[in-house]
Design a protein around this nucleic acid. Structure first.
Lengths: 198, 198
DNA sequence: AGTTTTAGCTACAGTCGTGTATCTTATCGT
DNA sequence: ACGATAAGATACACGACTGTAGCTAAAACT
């Protein structure tokens, strides 16, 4: 009838659906995520969605898995501090992408289904290969620049924890000064190095 | 008609409504919070709620403000490490109360209204008087046990950030060993003290 | 005791999302 | 060019929640 002349199919359509699902989740939160809204935003029919997924969260997980950031922090020559800041910057950028917002909301959802969280780790994070600052810290520990014994799970998580909390508190992306402060005042001292500029 | 013989009023009724609202928010998340569910759980009529509040979040904010934890960490004699762990324990307990879960969900809600967050800070946190570890760290800095210059906003926030992230990651309350690890491996080094047991 | 206040009940129209069924037809594979 | 596949449109009954209105009667105040 009033159908547009072209009809999307396969990858094109999937892309549109994934984008719509992540955008909806990022705006409304997983709690308010509906098949209806995803379908409308993707300009497709609800029936098309039901042919593949049984509920909105199932769909969202597929979307997040397909769109997980593959970018890895690439530790440079010999600049631990700079590399750590860069890794946190990567994390902030991701955290403020629609996908990052959606993931944060899923993790903080009090009604979260453990199975969903587990699926999130298996399909998104684990494949992503370690956290952001972790990659950098391990790299420099391997080269002898810092004591591997200091890289406990707690220490490896400091950067991510500080950034996450800051985002939740302010709702805004921390600027480079704040990221530098996290590195100088929290991560480096915990890693056994003298704090830089206080 | 089939109305129960007694009819609650004033504070009794308010208490039931607040409890119901926080419980609902903790279970369903603020996104799925409805007047209907609160009314049903409080065993009152929806009309009664509409007489006082115009929407569920408005109601929830009143409930959280009324129920905010007044318990303060009381720094003891001369045990910085122990007092920090105790402060984090207080925070974990609060974070796992229905109110804490509701607050976390509000802060992580991608659809969060800045006005709601601001109201939350003004009506709940600010009145609470500082964060958990902050009280302890300031106390020992005042007594000269550690360098006040090291107590930057970043350092004062490490404990809360680590606990928050841990709760989001695992969905469970960190045990005392983990809290001790946070204190020993993250907070104390950042505060300029040698890490205790690694 | 009489009056005011307000909790509790019922009903209503309206909106939104669900899950399923049915039909048409664009697109793809061969 | 033809047949298989699947996208797109529409319709439907159902349930949940909304916001308002009107009524009854319990609790509180005088």
């Amino acid at each position: 009838m009033s159908e547009s002349r072209t009809r999307r199919r396969g990858k094109d359509l999937l892309d549109a659906i994934y984008t719509a699902a992540i955008a909806e989740a990022a705006e409304s939160g997983p709690g308010r995520l509906t098949m209806d809204a995803i379908a409308k935003r993707a300009a497709t029919a609800r029936t098309t969605l039901y042919r593949r997924w049984s509920d909105p969260v199932d769909l969202l997980l597929d979307a997040l898995a397909e769109r997980h950031p593959r970018e890895q922090p690439a530790p440079g020559a010999d600049d631990l501090r700079g590399d750590l800041i860069a890794a946190l910057r990567l994390m902030v950028d991701w955290g403020f992408s629609p996908a990052g917002r959606a993931v944060l909301a899923i993790l903080a959802d009090p009604a979260r289904d453990p199975a969903v969280v587990q699926a999130l780790w298996e399909r998104v994070f684990d494949r992503h290969g370690g956290t952001f600052t972790q990659t950098v810290l391990r790299h420099y520990a391997d080269r002898g620049a810092l004591d591997p014994a200091r890289l406990t799970p707690v220490v490896l998580d400091i950067g991510e924890a500080m950034v996450t909390k800051r985002i939740m508190d302010t709702g805004e992306a921390p600027d480079d000064d704040y990221l530098a402060a996290i590195v100088d005042q929290a991560i480096l001292p915990a890693a056994g190095l003298p704090p830089q500029r206080i």
